[in-house]
Amino acid sequence: MEIDRLTVRFGELTAVHDLTLNSDCGEVLALLGPNGAGKTTTVETLEGFLSPTSGTVRVAGHDPVADHDLVMARLGVMLQSCRLYSAITPLEALRLFASYYRRALDPAPLLERVGLTHRRAIAWRKLSGGEQQRLALALALVGRPDVVILDEPTSGLDVEGRLLVRRIVAELRQSGTCVLLTSHELSEVEKMADRVAIIDGGRLRAVGTPAELAAADRRPEIRFSAPAHLDRAALASHLDATVTQPEPGRFILALEPTPAAIAELTVWLAERNIALSDLSTGVASLEDVFLRLTGEHQPEAKGPGQTP
């Protein structure tokens, strides 16, 4: 899968700007970004639904628009919102889709693989959201694709469903399939992806393995979890450091994680009888990297020695 200097514009709006990204056989690449970052536009360009304004995309060596049939024969797609004929059953849908491909998988074992055998004769409209997601995943796999695009594959799935997606993605990697996935579930991405590309405002902000991104983002800071109502201004003033809360109950203290600084923090919490449920220093999580690169921050509380 090759994306070379891709730009996609809709009138005045530039949805994707000069994006270059490649992925090889047996690799799982995750595309991350906030809503409106350009993920869906990028994915739909790879699927041939949109034409590039400039730049090129190639899937399995072919242009998805000019060589649509060739690309579709080797591409498996799980759309973000996959609707099917309301009266079709899972087994009928898999048999129908299998007929589109030259060397399709046997529908019945595939249905078993995604845990839908007991629901094989139920109309699509009567399946739960999670079951519809499982069927959408099976439909993406039925043609034995060389390249698979999974758009939000874990959305709406329960814990068992998420484990299933993780297992299938691992199997695809092992069989040499190139997988591109998008997700808002950063913890899932961290578990599944070999490489992560973060885009925001249509531009590529960072690309690398989760470990590489986290190492590049290493900053002098202490991260901890405590009740969300913690008085950040008071703590910031006490330690003379910035305290941010990227999400309720998670705090980042911009301070060199020396033993003395950690001791001072824990004493401050202990004096106020505030429970400390998690404390870490050093390597940032993928979520921290994502939040920093996409600017999705909560307002900061600053210490007395810092100017806003």
Partner: peptide, 9 residues
């Protein structure tokens, strides 16, 4: 749209 992402054509 889903059928458009298959080789059906």
């Amino acid at each position: 749209k889903r059928l458009g992402a298959t080789p059906l054509g």
